[in-house]
């Protein structure tokens, strides 16, 4: 009982330390999975940022005449017994006499960019649609959400392929396709949050103060709808990277010579029996990146809402 007056006497600053952000961060760092995910992600961002320093070669430079390399040469690692007089290529050489390691390093840039931009676009459009649908209700809600239902009726990857058929192949169009496919997920999440938040008293209070609908929606409701959006977004990035790589693997996403992991895998897929290293390393790179976002997304979900069951977003 004595603790009550003490708590009441606490300064405002220490009360703020229990904000959702801090609480989330604290919970997040307590989870092993999330810590692993976050560590991998930070490393990947560093690799992407410092790619020119890490990669020993330019990603698209062919080494004919520069070094004694052969086509699709196996990895040569000095530590693992490769003769010291040979130049070191830890992931080998590809069909165009390029250093695979350098390409994989630069590929980090492409994949992170793909993940963030596609989901960024999808969140932007999805939030707008979901917010309008949830806040306005009525026919706007019906029209928007039924259209989202139709988009969700297609398997996502199939819809992405169909959209690329219209837009034409290439990385940029693949980005649009994946963004479009992801919009309905975010629209649904935001709409659900808006529906529940708009009934709360603080919204009614803001309205009573004479705030406009736009102000209420964007400054009062949407900030409170962020947590589920962040979770969905993080898991969405994992899916988007996987989808973009798959589209590139099929030859309709990023085009050579872009150092994109899916493209690297796709162009050398028939060489898996003779030069497996050309397939192995880009695949591992995709897996690690996707894993990082998946782990982080799961951790965020548990951290932001511990009551929520661990139901993964199907993909």
């Amino acid at each position: 009982m004595t603790s009550i007056p003490e708590a009441a006497a606490l300064p405002a600053a220490s009360l703020r330390s229990n904000s959702l952000l801090r609480l989330t961060l604290r919970r997040l760092t307590r989870q092993r999975n999330a810590r692993v995910g976050l560590t991998i992600l930070i490393s990947l961002i560093l690799v992407a940022a410092f790619a020119p320093l890490i990669a020993p070669y330019e990603p698209n430079r062919d080494l004919i005449g520069i070094e004694p390399v052969t086509q699709r040469q196996k990895p040569c690692i000095h530590l693992l017994g490769c003769p010291a007089d040979q130049p070191q290529h830890i992931m080998g050489i590809d069909a165009n006499y390029r250093d695979v390691f350098s390409r994989v390093v630069y590929g980090t840039r492409v994949s992170l960019m793909v993940g963030f931009t596609t989901i960024g676009m999808a969140i932007l459009v999805g939030t707008l649609l979901g917010a309008v649908a949830g806040y306005a209700g009525g026919w706007a809600d019906n029209v928007i959400m039924r259209f989202m239902d139709v988009l969700l009726a297609f398997p996502g990857f199939l819809l992405a392929i169909a959209i690329i058929t219209v837009l034409g192949r290439g990385l940029q169009n693949a980005l649009y396709a994946i963004a479009i496919v992801n919009i309905p997920h975010f629209a649904r999440v935001v709409r659900a949050s808006v529906l529940s938040i708009k009934e709360q008293e603080f919204v009614a209070a803001t309205r009573a103060l004479g705030a406009s609908d736009t102000r209420i929606l964007f400054l009062r409701i949407l900030p409170n709808a962020l947590p589920p959006l962040i979770v969905q977004g993080t898991l969405g990035i994992a899916g988007a990277i996987l989808e973009a790589a798959a589209l590139s693997f099929l030859g309709i996403g990023a085009q050579p010579p872009t150092p994109e992991w899916g493209t690297m895998l796709g162009t050398e897929r028939n060489q898996v029996f003779t030069a497996p290293h050309l397939v192995f390393f880009p695949g591992i790179a995709i897996m690690i990146t996707v894993l990082a976002f998946n782990l982080l997304g799961d951790g965020l979900r548990d951290a932001m809402d511990p009551r929520l069951a661990q139901v993964s977003k199907p993909r």
Partner: peptide, 15 residues
């Protein structure tokens, strides 16, 4: 399971 959901299907197939 975590690695499984993060693995590209086509890569696993080739491997």
């Amino acid at each position: 399971a975590n690695v499984g959901v993060s693995m590209p299907v086509y890569w696993l197939g080739l491997m």
